[in-house]
Design a protein around this nucleic acid. Structure first.
Length: 384
DNA sequence: AAATCGGGGTG
DNA sequence: CACCCAGATTT
């Protein structure tokens, strides 16, 4: 048995013929999207490709649409973005989630801007190696920039292509599964992706497959009767589309905690950046794990954030639910009012094992300062 | 290889 | 409420 046997058993499906039908389907059905303004054959702006593809990670097209348009208006190119403050970048990202993506985008913009030659505009790198070395750019995004913007014969592999390949070839495993025989599961999928990209029309094949996966080869109730590839799709022919790709198992975790809305005598709110269970590395309200219904007294853990002898009052303001990936969070909200004005002495000294920054925010500006809905929900419990 | 990271939309 | 969605990074 060789590592090639997979391809010997399964004959080639993405033939020049089927790829041609894919392209014709795409020309006839391509949606109008803000990141494909100049026709399907025009090379894209690499910066726009980078931003849109990053926004589209784990976020649906319909949601990204408006975010992308707003973003490009404020940060039209790498240079404009590189000069921005992280807080403002977060505001333009607010609601998309996965804030590390926004942080990495800014990091990469600064790196690319620093590479700029004198008098020349900033330009995204043009090789896979250079792109993948940048923060937030992995194999998928690098392939998207290289093919869609530079029209190189580079492959991409995202959830849409995985679903299509799994059904076309009845692949009963996911790229993330453990390797079998001599072949890594990821590599099998990438080989199919490279086959499709081995063409001067790679840019269109890649985008057409993503569009096909989004609008036709959907996870639930795929529209096989309109699919240009139904003639060679094994899962369709055997009426087994619902079996592919195999479902991935995920473990859910429930977590109960307390979030503090600490208000100083001069009406400022304590915010923390770093060292927390959730929303690490971004400005959020202080929170910690606690038992249910344990909010009658101020938990000892809260002394990490405030000095107990400066507390004027502690009020329980309710409980809210919030989901962060697999975590189902239930969080009690405490409104802690202090006798003293905001000052550095309120900050902890020896409790933090991770780098932690603290900030006092004007109460009136609190709602526009936090970029995550976890903190916003807690504020709402107290002030709304 | 597995865990982690958010929020909005949909049925 | 459960599930889905154009992945990357860390452990």
């Amino acid at each position: 048995m060789t590592e090639r046997n997979h391809f010997l058993i399964f004959p080639r499906i993405m033939t020049p013929d089927s790829l041609k039908r894919l392209r014709e389907w795409f020309r006839a059905n391509a949606a109008e999207l803000p990141w494909r303004p100049a026709g399907l054959d025009a090379p894209r702006d690499p910066y726009a490709v980078w931003i849109s593809e990053t926004m589209l990670q784990q976020t649906q097209v319909s949601t990204v649409r408006d975010y992308f348009t707003r973003w490009m208006k404020r940060f039209p190119d790498v240079e404009a973005l590189a000069k921005a403050e992280e807080a403002e970048v977060f505001k333009y990202w607010q609601g998309l989630g996965y804030y590390s993506r926004a942080r990495n985008i800014l990091k990469t913009a600064k790196i690319v801007a620093a590479l700029r030659q004198a008098q020349e505009p900033c330009k995204m790198p043009e090789t896979r190696k250079e792109l993948e070395a940048l923060p937030g750019i992995g194999a998928y995004t690098a392939g998207a920039i290289l093919s869609l913007a530079y029209h190189q014969r580079e492959a991409i592999l995202d959830g849409n292509l995985v679903r299509i390949f799994s059904r076309l070839y009845e692949l009963d495993f996911l790229p993330t599964d453990k390797g079998s025989a001599n072949k890594n599961c990821t590599e099998i999928y990438w080989e199919y992706a490279r086959e499709v990209a081995d063409s001067p029309k790679a840019y269109m094949h890649n985008e057409a497959l993503m569009e096909l996966g989004r609008t036709v080869c959907k996870t639930k109730s795929p529209l096989c009767e309109t699919c240009p590839l139904r003639g060679e799709c094994r899962a369709f022919q055997e009426c087994r589309t619902t079996e592919f790709p195999p479902a991935k198992k995920r473990t859910e975790k429930s977590w109960h905690g307390t979030v503090l809305v600490v208000e100083s005598a001069d009406e400022k709110i304590l915010a923390v950046n770093g060292g927390q269970k959730f929303l690490d590395k971004q400005l959020a309200l202080p929170h910690f794990e606690s038992a249910r219904h344990a909010t009658v007294a101020l938990p000892a853990k809260a002394e990490d954030y405030i000095n107990a002898d400066e507390v004027k009052s502690v009020e329980y303001c309710g409980t809210f639910r919030h989901s962060i990936t697999v975590h189902k969070i239930e969080c009690d909200v405490l409104h802690v009012q202090l006798l003293t004005k905001a000052k550095a002495s309120h900050l902890p000294t020896e409790n933090s094992d991770k780098p932690t920054a603290f900030e006092w925010i004007e109460k009136a500006k609190a709602f526009e300062t936090f970029a995550n809905s976890f903190s916003l929900k807690a504020l709402k419990k107290v002030f709304c």
